[in-house]
Design a protein around this nucleic acid. Structure first.
Length: 902
DNA sequence: CGATAAACGTA
DNA sequence: CGTACGTTTATCGC
């Protein structure tokens, strides 16, 4: 492995360099230098000290290139110094708990970097550093000491430099002997003399009153050191001299305490501080957990990669001679070969120019698709398209789009390492092949060619056995090896069936949907854009007129000034940057103040939001007059798919203005209508199924309006006496339960007291006890097993359920409540999509599936197929699962998405 | 330029 | 102090 902190061949240096860091001191500085609000994980763990410390360390490793590194830590608060002088450091405030928790994290990071941490009970980090520094210098090394403790200046010499933070942790001042003398007027060895006279507030060591660094330096120079000063104390003139005589004991004690001990017995030797290769797998794990993406990249970028190392991919890469590709492929029939496609995977506009195929770990070929002989092209096309030829790939959908752009059909995908990694670790957001290789294979994917960063090679060398071609071959080989590993891991996690029968077949369905896209009425969109833009301008003008000046209404910062400074409005909910200006808060303010500015601002928000949505859609219209979204199958931790570029899963529907945007999605030429089919109350039905609550199951079987039925039971009135207010309370609570809603949250949403909300929940659970038991049980079981599971066995791992951190734990509990419900719904609609897609094909229908919006499918219906398609969709959606309650499906058709809605 | 925060749309 | 997403804009640090 090439990871090495400093190449020993560094020509600029002749002597080895030891970097010694005072861990507590630097971490503590980082803790106060970086605002904790900006540095904590999504689950609330503070990481500001960890981040600051690691960032500083990364800079030092990069800039100083030490050959040896060690980090010293204090152990507890008592040392031989506090024994001798109990007041020592006694004024230090208790360390904040948010800081204490970060020290182990720092040590964990140091562990992954294989940097030893050194501690000595009863001594301070400074003493450890002094000892190691002395030994290093004795063996001919240079030493850098990084600490925020000025006592370390006594260590400075020709061979030892102290890096002292000026502000924060990134601005370090280099204290050489000259720098110390310049700043303090005494040599480094006399610095502790000076400090003894002046005192150190932070250590609770009083100095001689009236004596600052200037006087102290003058005395030390005049009398030749502290001993001289003390000996001559009786003759030192003036008030300062008087004070000195009154504080001789204190000064002597100060000097005793600030002397660094440099002959400790330590568990490590200087040699053992030699830089070691990093534990990259552990680094990924720890940095993932801390959510330090950029910092990890910064560190990894420092490591010079060397080609041909044992841990790389040692591959025999070739390009078959023209006309021999078919034979090469035939010779490997029956084996699962791994593929890597180089190209662009934009739906409907893909292209592929390179292809690598790996056969086992040692052999691969790479092809330039732009320059194949007709015979090879034919052989390749047949091989790719043959569903009976098993293949593995990382990201089958992207490969599918790219190959399609070159007229090639991809079938027979037996394994997808991207999907496999996602099913194993659904909470991960990205599954970069290089990362997977490091984690599961302990291999580096990078090769010399890619390290050079030579973009030119990419263009010039499409298929050869070096450069881009070699890189593709390495990736293909990695896919092959990952397939072996991940197949086992999938099976261990009980996800192999989910992979084979659901996610993998879904790839083709999604690829078809993306390729088809949905037709839009561009003229309609353009006219909407004009209208919304005019509304934006009007609202802005009126808003400015009210306050008499122009501000950027899109800037929360400027709005806060206007609202809370200029207009002196009551403060809203606190956010990181001050007070929120979100729509709910503005609405609330408007109801209380009736200030017209707020009305114009809200109107401006609405209109600009709509305009922005329309503009985005217009930008996305492809040459075929359709919008081709991309579905992401490996993003949502619950198992849902997401839609991007553009996101067609958040097209407005709630307001009339928003619904006008839905009218722009229309049936395409040659088709009869759009058909939408959605599951009604899918999540509550799944709740009923999973909980087995008889009352809730009966609610669905009765055919009565769900919320009305539940309301009648909770409030103890006949269903026809459930008022709409009661119904909406029940609806809010029912859905809230699936999200882990608390009585506090419910009270907030319904604007009732916590007591009322709590009573409402009690009444609910009194009638639907099965729901309560289920919700409690699901969290319990997940805590025990480590994961939740959906009806198809899709897992979500929630290690935070046992966290000591309440915020993290409760967050995980809410996730545990929601994941089986949201995830089961995702399972069901995926099954339905497969069924609809297959049914359309098997029945020879020309209608097609276009969109999925979590619980809704949108199809484009070919002329004359409406009835049969509706029956097919109803059958497949309702039959997607065998639940204790029926799966109701509502269907609508029309010439636009809006008109097809219901 | 890239990352983050705020805001807001959907299920 | 209710889950899951994606996109835009402003803002700030590098």
């Amino acid at each position: 492995m090439a990871a090495r902190l400093a190449p020993v061949t560094d020509a600029a240096r002749t002597r080895p360099l030891l970097l010694l860091v005072d861990g507590h001191s630097m971490a503590y500085r980082a803790f106060f230098a970086l605002p904790v609000e900006n540095f904590s994980t999504t689950t609330g763990t503070p990481t500001n000290a960890v981040y600051g410390f690691t960032s500083m360390l990364a800079n030092l490793l990069r800039d100083e290139r030490p050959t040896h590194v060690g980090v010293a830590f204090d152990v507890g608060r008592t040392t031989f110094r506090t024994q001798a002088y109990p007041a020592y450091k006694a004024t230090r405030e208790t360390t904040p708990t948010e800081f204490v928790g970060q020290v182990p994290l720092i040590k964990e990071i140091l562990g992954t970097l294989r940097i030893p941490t050194v501690e000595k009970p009863d001594y301070e980090a400074d003493d450890v550093i002094a000892t190691l520094a002395r030994r290093a210098v004795a063996s001919g090394m240079d030493v850098l000491v990084c600490t925020g403790d000025r006592d370390a200046f006594q260590l400075v010499s020709d061979a030892v430099t102290v890096l002292y933070p000026r502000k924060g942790v990134s601005d370090l001042v280099r204290f050489t002997p000259e720098a110390v003398t310049e700043k303090y007027g005494v040599t480094p060895e006399c610095y502790p003399d000076l400090a003894a006279l002046v005192g150190e507030t932070s250590d609770n060591l009083p100095g001689v009153p009236g004596v600052g660094p200037k006087t102290a330096a003058k005395w030390i120079t005049a009398y030749g050191g502290l001993e001289g000063v003390l000996a001559a104390a009786s003759t030192v003139p003036g008030k300062a001299g008087e004070n000195l005589r009154a504080h001789l004991d204190q000064v002597r004690m100060n000097r005793g305490l600030n002397r660094a001990v440099d002959d400790l017995e330590l568990p490590v030797t200087v040699d053992e501080l030699a830089a070691q290769p990093w534990d990259r797998e552990a680094m990924h794990r720890v940095f993932d957990a801390l959510e330090f993406r950029v910092l990890r990249e910064r560190l990894l970028a420092m490591v010079p990669e060397e080609a041909g190392e044992a841990d790389g991919f040692d591959l025999d890469v070739s390009t078959p001679a023209s006309g021999t590709l078919g034979a090469w492929l035939d010779a490997r029939r029956g084996r699962v070969l791994a593929l890597e496609v180089t190209g662009r995977s934009t739906p409907a506009r893909g292209d592929a120019w390179g292809l690598a195929i790996a056969d086992g770990p040692g052999e691969a070929i790479s092809l330039d698709l732009t320059d194949l002989s007709p015979a090879d092209e034919g052989a390749l096309a047949a091989w790719l398209a043959d569903p009976a030829v098993p293949k593995a790939v990382h990201g089958a959908k992207d490969a599918w789009h790219a190959l399609r752009g070159r007229g090639l059909t991809l079938a027979g995908i037996e394994f997808d390492t991207l999907l496999a990694a996602y099913l194993c670790h659904p909470d991960q957001r990205s599954f970069d092949l290089a990362d997977l290789a490091v984690r599961h294979l302990r291999r580096e994917l990078r090769t010399q060619a890619s390290d050079d960063g030579d973009q030119g090679a990419f263009e010039l060398d499409l298929g050869g056995s070096s450069g881009a071609g070699h890189q593709a071959a390495v990736r293909a080989a990695a896919v092959g090896e990952l397939t072996q590993v991940l197949e086992d891991e999938l099976a261990d996690r009980g996800a192999d069936q989910l992979m084979r029968d659901l996610e993998l077949p879904l790839v083709g369905v999604l690829a078809d949907m993306e390729t088809l896209g949905i037709a839009v009425d561009v003229e309609h969109l353009t006219s909407l854009e004009r209208g919304f833009a005019a509304a934006v301008a009007d609202a802005a003008a009126e808003a400015f007129a009210v306050i008499g000046r122009e501000v950027n209404l899109g800037s929360p910062k400027q709005l806060q000034e206007v609202l809370f400074d200029d207009l002196q409005m009551p403060k809203t909910k606190r956010i990181k940057t001050g007070y929120t200006t979100d729509a709910a808060a503005l609405q609330d303010l408007y109801e209380r103040t009736q200030h017209p500015f707020l009305a114009h601002l809200l109107a401006h928000r609405d209109a600009s939001r709509l305009r922005q949505t329309v503009e985005g859609l217009l930008r996305s219209v492809a040459d075929d007059g359709r919008i081709h979204t991309t579905y992401l199958q490996t993003i949502a931790a619950t198992g849902r798919i997401s839609s991007t570029d553009p996101n067609l899963q958040n097209i407005p529907i709630r307001t009339e203005e928003g619904r006008r945007i839905r009218r722009a999605f229309v049936v395409g030429a040659g088709y009869e209508s759009l058909l939408t089919a959605d599951y009604s109350q899918i999540e509550m039905r799944i709740m009923a199924h999973l909980s087995g609550d008889e009352g809730l199951i009966e609610a669905f079987r009765s055919g009565e309006d769900l919320h009305r039925y539940v309301g009648s039971r909770v409030f103890g009135v006949p269903t026809d006496e459930v008022t709409s207010a009661m119904r909406s309370k029940i609806k809010a609570m029912s859905y809230g339960l699936a999200y882990g809603l608390s009585s506090f949250g419910l009270s907030k949403q319904l604007t009732i007291s916590v007591g009322e909300a709590s009573a409402l929940m009690d009444d609910y659970f009194a009638r639907f006890g099965g729901v309560r038991d289920y919700l409690a049980g699901v969290v319990d079981e997940a805590r025990r097993t480590g994961y939740t599971a959906t009806i198809l066995g899709r897992r979500r791992y929630l290690p935070d359920l046992t966290s000591d951190n309440r915020q993290r734990r409760e967050m995980a509990e809410r996730m545990a409540l929601n994941a089986p419900i949201q995830g089961s719904a995702a399972d069901l609609i995926k099954v339905a999509m497969l069924g609809v897609h297959r049914g359309l094909r098997e029945e020879g229908l020309a209608s097609r599936l276009l969109l999925q919006v979590h619980d809704e499918l949108v199809l484009e219906v070919a002329p004359g197929e409406r009835e049969v398609v509706e029956a097919l969709v109803r059958r497949e959606m309702a039959g997607a699962g065998d639940l204790a309650v029926p799966l109701d499906v509502s269907v609508g058709t029309g010439s636009s998405w809006h008109d097809a809605g219901h």
